[in-house]
Measured scan of single mutants.
Amino acid sequence: VTTYKLVINGKTLKGETTTKAVDAETAEKAFKQYANDNGVDGVWTYDDATKTFTVTEMV
């Protein structure tokens, strides 16, 4: 189990959260659900070296 981080660069919501998951795919599903629940829709990137997902909403 690995800890993954999500950085949110939203128009109205900004911040970070973490989740523990067995792999990046599982973490991504959890983060996308979290973003969807919070009304964040944007471009996703993932950095495997730092285990960090970033979602950026276009203005």
Rank of each mutant, 00 (worst) to 15 (best):
A27E: 00
E16F: 14
V43H: 10
Q33R: 12
K29D: 05
I8S: 03
F31R: 00
T26N: 08
A21N: 03
D47I: 05
A21Y: 04
T3L: 14
Y46V: 01
T45F: 08
V40W: 10
G15H: 13
D41G: 09
I8H: 03
I8C: 04
E25T: 12
A30I: 14
D48I: 10
T2V: 14
A49M: 13
E28G: 09
V43K: 09
V43A: 09
T26D: 05
I8L: 09
K5E: 03
T52D: 01
A24N: 06
N38H: 15
K29M: 09
E25L: 11
T3M: 10
V59P: 10
W44D: 00
A30P: 02
V22N: 11
A24W: 14
V43L: 14
A49E: 14
T54N: 05
T50F: 05
T17H: 12
T52A: 03
K5W: 10
K20T: 15
T17F: 14
Y34N: 02
D23K: 04
E28D: 05
V22S: 13
A30N: 11
T19N: 04
T52E: 04
A24E: 08
A35E: 01
D37L: 12
A30T: 14
F53C: 00
Y34V: 05
F53P: 00
K14W: 12
G10D: 03
Y34P: 00
V1F: 12
V1Q: 13
E16D: 06
W44K: 00
E28K: 14
D48F: 07
T12C: 13
A21C: 07
Y34H: 04
K32W: 06
V40I: 15
T18W: 11
V1C: 14
T45C: 08
A24M: 15
F53V: 01
T45S: 12
W44F: 04
T26C: 06
T26S: 12
T54Y: 11
L6N: 01
Y46M: 02
D23V: 03
T3H: 06
F53N: 00
G39C: 07
N9F: 14
K32Q: 09
K20L: 15
T45M: 10
D23Y: 04
V1N: 14
Y34D: 01
K51E: 04
A49G: 06
V1S: 09
E28R: 12
T52F: 02
T50H: 05
K11F: 14
V1D: 13
V1G: 08
E28V: 08
T18Y: 13
T17Q: 10
G39E: 06
N38Q: 15
G10Y: 06
K14C: 10
V22P: 10
T45W: 06
T56A: 05
T45L: 07
T56W: 08
G10S: 10
K5Y: 13
